[in-house]
Amino acid sequence: MPIDDLFGVHGKALAVRSQRMGMLASNIANASTPGYKAKDIDFAAALRSAEAGPLDRGIADATKYRVPLQMSMDGNTVELATEQTAFAENAVAYQTTLSFLNGRIGQITRALKGE
């Protein structure tokens, strides 16, 4: 049985959320780097694309530069409040997906043990 049949879309969702968390963390870390261009992953688009093909390709296709509300003088497009909010929301969604997968693994383990 393929692993996707056991976990459905949640395995890919966790991978996309993980990649997005790294990207948002990079944006936050580079908030004061002149010329740095903030990027983000459109989660829904990445998941749709990953369903049709390889996950890495789906993430690459869904990665876009963020358009700032107010441009800085040094060309940096990171808006710290926006990035921190997106990071927090993504962290909650990541934890939720992880909890679901842990529950599913527990069900499979109990079934294999005959409980």
Rank of each mutant, 00 (worst) to 15 (best):
M1P: 00
I3W: 12
D4G: 03
D4Y: 03
D5Y: 12
A13I: 12
R17E: 15
R17T: 15
Q19E: 13
R20T: 07
G22W: 05
L24G: 01
L24M: 04
L24Q: 01
L24W: 09
N27S: 09
N27Q: 07
I28M: 09
A29Q: 05
A31K: 03
A31W: 04
S32C: 04
S32R: 04
P34G: 02
P34T: 02
G35W: 00
G35L: 07
Y36R: 03
A38Q: 01
A38E: 06
D40A: 14
D42H: 01
D42A: 08
F43R: 04
A44W: 01
A44E: 05
A44P: 00
A52W: 02
L55D: 11
T63N: 07
T63I: 00
Y65C: 06
Y65T: 10
P68G: 08
P68L: 02
Q70M: 03
Q70I: 06
S72I: 01
M73G: 07
V78N: 03
E79L: 02
T82P: 01
E83Q: 11
Q84I: 15
T85E: 14
A86T: 01
A86V: 00
F87Y: 13
A88L: 13
A91L: 13
A91V: 00
A93F: 10
Y94F: 15
Y94N: 09
Q95M: 14
T96N: 13
L98S: 13
N102S: 15
G103F: 12
G103A: 14
G103C: 13
G106R: 15
G106A: 15
T109L: 10
T109G: 10
R110D: 10
K113Y: 09
K113I: 07
E115W: 05
